[in-house]
Write a protein that binds this DNA or RNA. Structure first.
Lengths: 240, 240
DNA sequence: CAGATCGAGTGGTCAGACCATCAGTCCATC
DNA sequence: GATGGACTGATGGTCTGACCACTCGATCTG
């Protein structure tokens, strides 16, 4: 038998555990408002600092939503997961190629899933994003174009209905777009992207799995080829 | 233009950003000891409470390791992602399927890449892990079996030479095995796994992409089918 | 030189205070 | 009756200064 448990848990961690248990037991449900910090101090018999650190953690994990008017239970994911993964990638001396490679496979998988699971609502939203891209292209507004571009891809991710893949995707997509916008879209890239997005969306409407996957791959490889991508990743680490 | 949120960042969040930047810029490296809380208070011109909340977040993300003798930079993976996903599973049974779905995709992608990029060294290590599995099976040592099992899969991940996919994979794989082992491997599962691992490794040796991918998919679906995962989730809820 | 001792520094916790903001409530105005 | 402003109490965010337990390294002791 190996030695040692060791490790003393801090009071704030105990607060975290306690509240988590209450949520898991169902005594606290989504939308419920939990007592104020000062009252929790009395109930747990700890100081406000400890309670606050505990609540901070829980809200970071997406279990609580804190406002100046109280703290309520929520079960939506928070962005800390994506942030953590993004940090790991940045700290891991990852090359830009590694990121785009992972992105390619994620997008292919998600678009395949989306082709089977997409709803009319998803399609409607994607049409809007595509329209925004066309509009931004005509106005030659590079920034708006990228925003709509991201929204389009993220809608595909949502349509895949795979919450874990969405998290993994979000953790790398911002890196990609930051680098790409740093390099700069030109008119050709935008017009080509619009064409591919049109084809991808049409394939999704038909529920055509292989075609949607194929168009996605062509699209991503096309963009990568047009952008001289080597620049950027280092600057990304420094700047942000 | 739509009217939107407007949010004010808390001081602790600003502390988090500041330190993250220092780490990303390379001014703080792994193993470095950062100044004490009191000194950071002066440098950031905020109170100790704010600094503490910020450091709490960073240590949660696995960037800092805090002890009574100081705070040091670390890059070891934190468990926050695993913990949060676990909570999500407990609150929503369907998300376990989301994770296994993501895992299936990742393993298929990585084994395909591995089939093209695997080295003799990788193969040698995988042979050792497979031998350990066989040995553990004969000794009916469930624990050793799982350890070798994980090592086998992680070696495939390494052989894919895709650092981003490896990070994403590591972020969820421990959770999967935790649930699976809670259910408990029986002799049948172990023997079947060994057979599949043998076939996967042989396919990798031949550099056979489609076959390795196919065997991996069969293997994972087989294991999932044999383990009634609902039981595992229930146990997960009861314990820990 | 080896071991015990001690003190400075560290993170963890506490209590009390002030502030800006928010959710009601009430009320004067239109 | 509806609108908008002013008041009030509660909440989260922040600050201050203090005490504790622990760790580590320098010092003292044999």
């Amino acid at each position: 038998m190996s030695i040692e448990p060791l490790e003393r848990k801090s009071l704030s961690d105990l607060v975290v555990e306690k509240i988590k248990q209450l949520i898991l037991k169902g005594e606290l449900k989504e939308g419920d408002r939990i007592p104020g910090e000062r009252e929790l101090c009395e109930q747990f018999a700890v100081s406000r600092a400890s309670v606050r650190e505990g609540l901070k953690i829980l809200s970071l994990q997406g279990l609580l939503k804190r406002t100046n008017a109280g703290t309520v239970i929520t079960t939506s994911f928070s962005s800390i997961l994506e942030e953590t993964l993004t940090l790991k990638i940045l700290l891991d001396d990852t090359s830009y190629e590694d990121i785009t490679e992972a992105r390619l496979f994620l997008e292919k998988t998600m678009v395949s899933l989306a082709a089977e699971r997409i709803t009319d609502e998803d399609i409607e939203l994607m049409e809007q994003h595509l329209a925004s891209m066309i509009d931004a292209d005509e106005r030659e507004n590079n920034n708006d174009f990228v925003i709509a571009d991201i929204a389009f891809h993220q809608q595909i991710a949502k349509a895949s209905r795979s919450s874990v893949l969405i998290i993994l995707y979000n953790s790398i997509i911002m890196l990609i777009f930051k680098v790409q916008t740093r390099v700069g879209y030109d008119a050709t890239v935008m017009k080509e992207s619009i064409k591919y997005h049109r084809r991808i969306l049409d394939a999704l409407k038909r529920g055509d799995v292989p075609e949607s996957e194929h168009e996605m791959q062509s699209h991503l490889l096309d963009v990568q080829e047009r952008l001289d991508h080597m620049t950027g990743i280092d600057k990304l680490k420094a700047g942000e």
